[in-house]
Simulated scan of single mutants.
Amino acid sequence: MSSMSQEILAFILTISGWVLVSSTLPTDYWQVSSNDGSVITTSTFWSNLWKVCVTDSTGVSSCRDFPSMLALDGYIQACRGLMIAAVCLGFFGSIFALIGMKCTKVGGTDKNKAKIACLSGVNFILCGLCSLSSCSLYAHRITTNFFDPLFLDQKYELGAALFIGWGGSILCILGGSVFCFSIADSFSKSHSQENYIYKGAARQSHISSYPRGQAVSVNQRPPPANSNSSRVQHFDKNVYV
């Protein structure tokens, strides 16, 4: 697969992952109340990074935003920061990808475009790691409370937003890695071509140092000065007269 095809594939993966990660941030169902051990459920509790809601049996939802950011639990604040950082990194990574791809006409020389594309891959990898850490931290808190026998409050299960965030994170990491590998391949190919051109130029300059019509190979050595073959006698045209 050529480097341009790899860049197009990486761009599709990273943009898809970034869209999923961005859609995870405002999604409602980060955690949903568990029905384990309940015979009759009249309401469903669910929450995300910004609010907590309850839905009754008729489908009517009542939500309440978190009153204070500083009074929130530490893991929610950490998840907010990581998700916002992931969205920002993906945004800048997409811009760098558009500039650094070979199929676009902006970015300058191929060497500069390769550096910009590599920077885009690093941004997308960091985007995926931030989103993956945020979703995993939130899921760890849910599972810890669920399996804790001493936790007597409402227990929750993993919501759909966490699975969407995990999927987007994996796509961002895979796409960013493909970006970096495609740039590494292009650098290796350009380096080998430069070595070939340099060696060819050096050999051409060595051959051209001989007079015209007397060019010899690089490994050929001139005969010794005292050899018999070099003693050629030249006679004048009137020698036999």
Rank of each mutant, 00 (worst) to 15 (best):
Q6V: 05
E7T: 00
E7M: 12
F11C: 06
S16Y: 04
S23N: 15
S23Q: 15
T24M: 14
T24P: 11
D28Y: 15
Q31D: 04
S33T: 10
S33F: 05
S33C: 13
S33Q: 13
N35E: 14
G37P: 13
I40W: 12
T42H: 15
F45H: 12
S47H: 10
N48S: 14
K51S: 13
C53L: 12
C53K: 03
T55V: 15
T58E: 12
S61L: 12
S61E: 14
S61N: 14
R64I: 11
A71M: 08
G74R: 14
Y75D: 06
I76L: 11
I76V: 14
Q77P: 01
G81R: 02
L82D: 00
I84D: 00
A85G: 13
A85D: 09
G90Q: 06
G90V: 08
F92T: 05
A97H: 02
I99V: 13
I99G: 00
I99P: 00
I99S: 01
G100I: 03
T104I: 06
T104M: 10
V106W: 07
D110R: 15
N112H: 11
K113T: 06
A114V: 03
I116K: 04
A117W: 00
A117T: 03
C118G: 08
G121L: 06
G121S: 09
V122P: 07
V122Q: 09
V122T: 12
L126I: 15
S131K: 07
S134R: 12
S134V: 15
S136E: 08
R141P: 01
I142C: 04
T143F: 09
F147P: 02
L150Q: 08
L150C: 04
D153L: 06
D153A: 01
Q154C: 01
K155A: 03
Y156M: 07
E157R: 11
G168Y: 10
I170N: 00
C172Y: 04
C172Q: 05
L174I: 12
L174H: 01
F181V: 02
F181G: 00
S182N: 01
S182G: 02
A184K: 11
D185K: 07
D185L: 02
F187Y: 01
K189F: 06
K189P: 00
S190D: 06
H191V: 03
E194Y: 05
I197K: 03
K199V: 08
A201M: 04
R203L: 08
S205F: 10
R212L: 07
G213T: 04
Q214T: 05
Q214K: 08
A215I: 05
V216W: 01
Q220A: 05
P224T: 03
P224A: 01
A225K: 11
D236C: 14
D236M: 13
